[in-house]
Each structure stands twice: as structure tokens, then as C-alpha cells.
């Protein structure tokens, strides 16, 4: 008795391995603070470097000048007009490109023969840098809205097509077999297995294609246009007006950023069954 008591008394308590502690900044507020700090620091450093003559304001621009420029173009309304124009082109190109590409990609599931037939052509088209088509597209569709939309479609549709086709090919064979054994027709299998199981992949391409649609719109504007952020950037850079170039670029960045998060909202709305797996990672 006394012996055991003795053991309990003298035994050193077992030290548990210390739990991994989360970084103190690892919360929404903490992370946001760090992110804002990084951005503010970057611009302050840039501003200071130009003011103290370490960098040439003529070649890199100056944050205060960019800000003044932004405020000015917001005040006279030109920023909203140009941004709106570019967004309109990009959204049209994105929407048509995604729909056309996805529909063709899914349709290829219907016929293995046709799919095999056209596969090399799709690969060939995909390997053409679509931007190189821009001069021809402008020749065909003019210098207005249509050519920018067409350029954006040429960029986005092929991504949507390949993704949709691949996802349709990869759709769970067992689910198809099960439905087939229930007597389902090909249309029913398409509607109940192929379409819903390709949806996540198609939505994933939204993220990429939003970017591509903006590329199409801006490059189209570079080549020939009277409006849009691409036009603003192009004209300003040919005048060595770096502050205006930056103002246009930052606006484009903001637009892309907002769209990216819009896709997230759409994803959560369309794929409720994909939710709540959370961003858990093994704690190594």
C-alpha cells in the first residue's frame, strides 16, 4: 500500500507533447491586418523610393500620383465608363465562351466516334496561342465591341470545352451502370449522372475563364478601341504616363479579384453538396 502511494508521489508527471499552437495572427482579423500592412508597406516604400530619388518616377510611376489619377478619373466619371465597358466585354465573352465550350464538350460525350474524330483538332486549336488571332479577329469583327467579345470567346470556350469533355468522360462509370440497369435511356443518364457530375469541373473553369475573358477584352482594346481600361492603359503607356497605366492596372486587378469571389458565391449556391468539408489540413 505505502509502496504504491510512494510511487504515485514520486513519479514525475508525464509531459504531454505540447499542442501545436496556432499563430497569434491566424484569425480573420489578424490575417487581414497582416495583409493590409503588407500592401500599405509596399506602397509607402514605393512612394518613399521615388521621393528620395532611388527610383525614377518617370519609369515606375508614383503611388500618390496613381491615387490622384484614380480620384480624378472617378470624379469625371471616365473610370466607371471605361471599367464598365471592359467588364461588359469580358462578361459577354465569358458567358458565351463558357456556354458554347461546355455544351460542345458535353455533347462530345454522346458519341465516342465523333469525340475520337475531333480530338486531334481540339488539341490543335488549343495549342494555338489565341492572342495571335487578335489581328484577324479585329479584321473580321471590326474595332467595336464584337471583336473583343469574340477574342474573349476564343480564349474561354476552348478551356470550357476541354474541361467539360474530360469531366464527362471521367464521370463515375458505376453510377452510370446502376442507372442503366434501372432501364435509364442515354438522355436520362446524361441528365442524372453526366451533367451533375461535370458541374463542379465546369464551375472550376469559371475562375480561370474570368481571367481569360479579361485578357481577351483588354488585348482587343490594346489593338484598337476607343473605350475600356485596355484602351486607357495602352494610350497612357504610349504617352509615358505611368501613373495612369497603374491606375488602369489596379482597377483591372480589383475587377478580377471581385469576379473571383463572385465565382465562390456561385459555387456555394450551385453545389450545396460540396460544402462543409472545410479547409482542414493534417496538422503536421
Amino acid at each position: 500500500m505505502t509502496e504504491t502511494a510512494q510511487v504515485v508521489k514520486t513519479a514525475a508527471p508525464v509531459r504531454r507533447r505540447e499542442k501545436k499552437r496556432r499563430n497569434v495572427f491566424d484569425s480573420l482579423i489578424g490575417r487581414s491586418a497582416l495583409q493590409i500592412l503588407a500592401v500599405v508597406g509596399f506602397f509607402l516604400l514605393w512612394e518613399a523610393a521615388v521621393r528620395w530619388g532611388w527610383l525614377s518616377g518617370f519609369l515606375v510611376g508614383q503611388p500618390s500620383g496613381v491615387l490622384r489619377n484614380l480620384i480624378g478619373s472617378i470624379a469625371n466619371g471616365s473610370l466607371f465608363a471605361d471599367t464598365g465597358y471592359t467588364i461588359f466585354e469580358a462578361i459577354l465573352g465569358f458567358a458565351f465562351g463558357t456556354v458554347i465550350g461546355s455544351v460542345i464538350g458535353l455533347a462530345l460525350w454522346y458519341s465516342v466516334f465523333v469525340a475520337r474524330l475531333v480530338e486531334p483538332f481540339i488539341a490543335a486549336i488549343n495549342s494555338v496561342p489565341k492572342i495571335a488571332l487578335a489581328p484577324i479577329i479585329i479584321l473580321w469583327f471590326g474595332t467595336g465591341l464584337l471583336s473583343k467579345v469574340a477574342l474573349a470567346i476564343s480564349l474561354t470556350s476552348i478551356v470550357a470545352l476541354i474541361t467539360a469533355y474530360q469531366a464527362a468522360k471521367d464521370a463515375d462509370k458505376d453510377l452510370q451502370a446502376l442507372l442503366f440497369s434501372m432501364g435509364a435511356s442515354k438522355q436520362q443518364i446524361f441528365k442524372r449522372v453526366i451533367a451533375p457530375s461535370t458541374l463542379p469541373a465546369i464551375i472550376a473553369t469559371f475562375r480561370i475563364n474570368i481571367g481569360f475573358a479579361l485578357v481577351g477584352a483588354v488585348v482587343g482594346e490594346f489593338i484598337s478601341s476607343q473605350h475600356g481600361l485596355g484602351h486607357v492603359i495602352y494610350v497612357a503607356s504610349s504617352l509615358y504616363d505611368l501613373n495612369t497605366v497603374w491606375a488602369g492596372l489596379f482597377t483591372l486587378m480589383l475587377v478580377g479579384f471581385l469576379f473571383y469571389h463572385l465565382v465562390e458565391v456561385i459555387e456555394n449556391w450551385l453545389l450545396p453538396w460540396k460544402q462543409q468539408q472545410g479547409g482542414t489540413q493534417i496538422n503536421v
Binding site: 463515375d172 458505376d174 453510377l175 446502376l178 442524372r192 457530375s197
Partner: peptide, 9 residues
Amino acid sequence: MQKDLLFPW
């Protein structure tokens, strides 16, 4: 089948 083959969506 062995897999339940429930449609996840």
C-alpha cells in the same frame, strides 16, 4: 453493389 453508389449531389 459493394459501393453504395449514392449520388453525392
